[in-house]
Design a protein around this nucleic acid. Structure first.
Length: 224
DNA sequence: GCATTAACAGCCG
DNA sequence: CGGCTGTTAATGC
């Protein structure tokens, strides 16, 4: 269980909830720390919590039978995920790995379902989020075949600043070039040269263990 | 050719 | 010192 204030600060969707709904939500959430490299869940797990990232960075990926992993998305502080699995009450279809030390908020399924049945504000949030994710995965379809490394890096960064998924007017993120590589599906060296190419075009500013987005629109549409 | 791994020096916190 | 960055060399698809 967490306090109402804590809920407000870690879950932007709670701003659309009424008093009674906030009370239910905060009682159904616990926080848990995951060290760098830890699996939050594996494909096939019955991990039934709806999950929010309080701090850290999580990679959402799939591992093929041959052992190769494909990153589907990077999830940063402020994102909530797993609603598809919780709604359908099924096993996880993917792996979740903490890219670095991360603090997560776990909402139990009963609480999630109560909000789903009772809260208009919560449902509005869910529809918006599902719709945005759908766009994200449709965009992934062209990814592997048609996009060069720099374009993939550009779009991976753009997703980390998606205004619907992360409704905070923030332009800076603490992330190493190695982590960008993991999220983009390229090596650290390629991530490095791609990032420098994006910096030369004035789309981002590189910092030590971090970067600032200077032009989100051009990043999102990079390569078109 | 392009991307990846390996390796290393330099830099930053 | 430990982790991150910028580069180069060797290797693989």
């Amino acid at each position: 269980m967490i306090s109402a204030n804590r809920l407000r600060s870690i879950a932007f969707w709670s701003h659309d909830l009424n008093e009674r709904e906030i009370e239910q939500a905060r009682r159904g959430i616990v926080e848990k720390a995951y060290p760098k490299g830890a699996f939050i869940c594996h494909r096939g797990d019955n991990f039934e919590a709806w999950t929010g990232i309080v701090s850290g960075l999580v990679r959402f990926c799939m591992t093929s039978a041959s052992g190769k992993t494909a990153t589907l998305a990077g999830l940063r502080t402020g994102s909530w995920f797993g609603e598809g699995t919780v709604l359908k009450n099924e096993l996880r279809q993917y792996d979740l790995v903490a890219v670095r030390d991360s603090q997560l908020a776990l909402m139990n399924r009963a609480t999630f379902m109560w909000l789903f049945e009772n809260s208009v504000g919560f449902n509005r949030f869910l529809v918006r989020q599902l719709n945005e994710r759908l766009g994200q995965f449709i965009a992934l379809l062209e990814y592997d075949r048609t996009l060069d490394a720099t374009t993939r890096v550009a779009r991976s960064i753009a997703w980390l600043f998606n205004p619907v998924l992360y409704p905070v007017a923030e332009t800076q993120i603490e992330v190493s070039q190695e982590e960008i590589g993991l999220l983009s599906g390229v090596s650290r060296q390629v991530a490095n040269s791609s990032l420098k190419a994006l910096e030369a075009k004035g789309l981002v500013r590189l910092e030590h263990n971090g970067l600032t987005v200077l032009n989100l629109d051009r990043l999102r549409n990079f390569g078109e």
